[in-house]
Nucleic acid binder design. Sequence first.
DNA 1: TCTAAAGCAGACAAATTTAGTCCACATTAT
DNA 2: ATAATGTGGACTAAATTTGTCTGCTTTAGA
Lengths: 135, 135
Amino acid sequence: MKISKKAYYGLRATLALAQTEKPLSIHTLAEMEHLPLDYLEKILQTLRKAGLVTAHKGVAGGYALARPASETNIWEILRELDPPIKTFSTPLKGELPCLHVGHCQTNEVWRMLENKIEKTLSDVTLESLIPRNNS
Amino acid sequence: MKISKKAYYGLRATLALAQTEKPLSIHTLAEMEHLPLDYLEKILQTLRKAGLVTAHKGVAGGYALARPASETNIWEILRELDPPIKTFSTPLKGELPCLHVGHCQTNEVWRMLENKIEKTLSDVTLESLIPRNNS
DNA sequence: TCTAAAGCAGACAAATTTAGTCCACATTAT
DNA sequence: ATAATGTGGACTAAATTTGTCTGCTTTAGA
């Protein structure tokens, strides 16, 4: 039940993109936020493939948010970078799918929890996290 | 953002204790739930130290819930076994405590998330998870 | 009072996951 | 052309999680 650095870095990076509305290269981004360059690159790749940021190559290239910060919520970002709750439907040593026939109590809990997390994080947009946003 | 096996095992075990109201030895517990014995022992130790289960040694010893199942919520259990959300207050390469002067946006998010998780799980008692509880 | 069944404690090892690096390549603005 | 960028994949290192082992203490009951 912890947030990975990957997710943390990703949030930091997208937040930076949200603030400076210009596209930024991974290089500047890494420097700005003091994040490891090559790792950050991987993270942005993931986000690009998920359609959350856009990249363009070449000399004046860089990354930018695919949508405005007000329309990008952090659940979208975090779920790509942190795997969802692993719900164990099978105990490791048993052969049956789940020993608790009928329904599995713990699975229900995880599912509920995940829903709650999703709802909570979906309500937070990148924009709402930009500091000094005294509108 | 995932539940560890440790937490899963711990929940399974306490749930078993909640159902059979007799004390159970780790041995029987492990067998019942198909969990690795020695690991389970560690887990129960943690829960004992947290005051959630009681143990007594000797031939007819074993573990039992410290409080009735209706008064034990699963947040108490899970928080002992799964470390809380690690909030990174410091970026790794920087010297300053946090680059985002004034307040750290991401920390706020993690804190909020953790609160939500706590609230959600605190509402679930062990008793409520016992199957066929058609009262 | 002996003994076997339990819990206790801590070191250790294996497995898995996360974090991070490296390198060769593709694209593109100037 | 070329230098600045992103792309993709292999790889390594570090950290964490999971699991095991070994020797000890306690205690009920024969």
